[in-house]
C-alpha cells in the first residue's frame, strides 16, 4: 500500500513523539518538548492561514492570550472546569476572529496584517491594564487541570513533565490530523486556490472573503488552544503571551520551516523553540538571530527550510 503524504506526516510525528523521551537526559526535557508541541500547535494554525490561504496575521498572540486567560479567569468568574475553559477560550477566540476578520478580509494585501496586529496589541493592552481582573503585568495563577491526579487515582501515575508531554503531543497530533484533512478537502482546496489567484478562485465560485474568514477563525482557535495549554502547563500566565513578539514568533516559525505544509510548520516550531535552549548565552542575541533568520529565509528560501532540504536531498538522490 502506498502511504499518502498525510499518513507519512502523522506517522513520522508519532514515531518521533514515542521515541524522543528515551533520549531525554533529564526530566527537564519533557518540559522543553512540551513547549515545542504547544508552539507547533499554534503554528499548524498559522499554516492553515498563511500556508494554505496566503494570508498573514501579526496578531495571533492575541488569540493565544484569550485562550490562556480564559483558563485563568473562567474557573474563577464562571466556575468552569479548566478543561471546559479551554473550549470556552477557543469559542471566544473564534468569535473574536469573526468580528475582527469579517470586515477586513474583503480587502487584499497587507490589510489583515495591520488589522490583526492592531487587534493583538489591543488584547495585550487590556490584559496589562485591567489589573483588578488580570493581575496586570505580573499575571495571575491558573487552576490545576486536575487530570493528572484523576489518572493517578486510577493507577496511571505520571510525573508532571510526562503528563504534559503526553497531553501536548496528543493535541498536536490531533491538530495536525485536522489540518491535513483540511488540506485535501473542498475547503482546503478553496483556500489554496485563492492563495494562487483570488480572481480565478472567484470565477470557479469560491466566496473568497468567506473562505479567508474560515481560515482566520480556524487558525485563531489553534492559537487559542495553544495559549490555554501554556497557561495550564505553567499554572500561571502573564500578558507576554499576547505580546507582539509572540505573534511574530508564530509567523516566523511557520515560514522558517515551510508554511505550505504541516510538517514544515512543525519543523520550524521545533527549531525556533530549541535554538534558544541550545545556545545558553543566546538571550542577548535572540532578537538579532530571529530578525536575521526572518530576512534570510524569506529572501533565499522562500518555501522554508523543510522544502529546501527536501529538494536538496532529491537533487542528491537523482
Amino acid at each position: 500500500m502506498r502511504i499518502s503524504p498525510k499518513m507519512a506526516t502523522l506517522l513520522t510525528l508519532s514515531v518521533i513523539m514515542l521515541i524522543a523521551p528515551f533520549f531525554f537526559p533529564s526530566a527537564y526535557y519533557f518540559r522543553i518538548a512540551s513547549l515545542v508541541y504547544v508552539n507547533a500547535l499554534a503554528v499548524v494554525g498559522v499554516v492553515i492561514l498563511t500556508g494554505y490561504a496566503g494570508q498573514i496575521s501579526l496578531g495571533h498572540a492575541g488569540f493565544a492570550g484569550i485562550g490562556g486567560y480564559a483558563c485563568a479567569l473562567a474557573p474563577v468568574y464562571l466556575g468552569l472546569h479548566p478543561a471546559a475553559s479551554v473550549v470556552f477560550g477557543a469559542l471566544a477566540s473564534g468569535v473574536m476572529a469573526w468580528i475582527v476578520g469579517r470586515p477586513i478580509l474583503r480587502l487584499k494585501g497587507y490589510y489583515l496584517a495591520v488589522a490583526s496586529l492592531g487587534f493583538g496589541i489591543l488584547v495585550s493592552m487590556v490584559l496589562t491594564n485591567e489589573i483588578a481582573v488580570t493581575g496586570g503585568p505580573d499575571g495571575m495563577k491558573v487552576a490545576d487541570l486536575g487530570l493528572r491526579s484523576w489518572l493517578s487515582e486510577r493507577g496511571l501515575s505520571l510525573t508532571n513533565g510526562q503528563f504534559w508531554y503526553t497531553i501536548t503531543a496528543l493535541l498536536l497530533l490531533a491538530g495536525a490530523w485536522l489540518a491535513l484533512n483540511l488540506e485535501n478537502s473542498a475547503t482546503g482546496r478553496a483556500l489554496r486556490a485563492l492563495h494562487g489567484s483570488e480572481t480565478a478562485a472567484g470565477t470557479v465560485g469560491i466566496d473568497v472573503a468567506s473562505a479567508k474568514l474560515t481560515a482566520f477563525i480556524i487558525s485563531a482557535v489553534y492559537a487559542s488552544v495553544s495559549g490555554s495549554l501554556i497557561a495550564l502547563m505553567n499554572r500561571m500566565i502573564t500578558p507576554d503571551i499576547a505580546g507582539y513578539m509572540h505573534s511574530i514568533e508564530m509567523v516566523t516559525m511557520a515560514v522558517l520551516g515551510g508554511s505550505a505544509s504541516v510538517a514544515g510548520g512543525v519543523f520550524g516550531a521545533a527549531i525556533l523553540t530549541l535554538l534558544p535552549q541550545a545556545l545558553t548565552s543566546f538571550d542577548q542575541y535572540e532578537q538579532v538571530t530571529l530578525g536575521l533568520i526572518m530576512m534570510l529565509v524569506m529572501i533565499f528560501l522562500r518555501q522554508g527550510l523543510l522544502p529546501g532540504l527536501a529538494s536538496l536531498l532529491k537533487g542528491r538522490g537523482a
Binding site: R192, G196, T199, A200
Partner: peptide, 10 residues
C-alpha cells in the same frame, strides 16, 4: 483568462 489565472502551486 487571456493571461492565464492558474493555481500555480496546486
Amino acid at each position: 483568462f487571456q493571461n492565464l489565472q492558474i493555481f500555480q502551486s496546486m
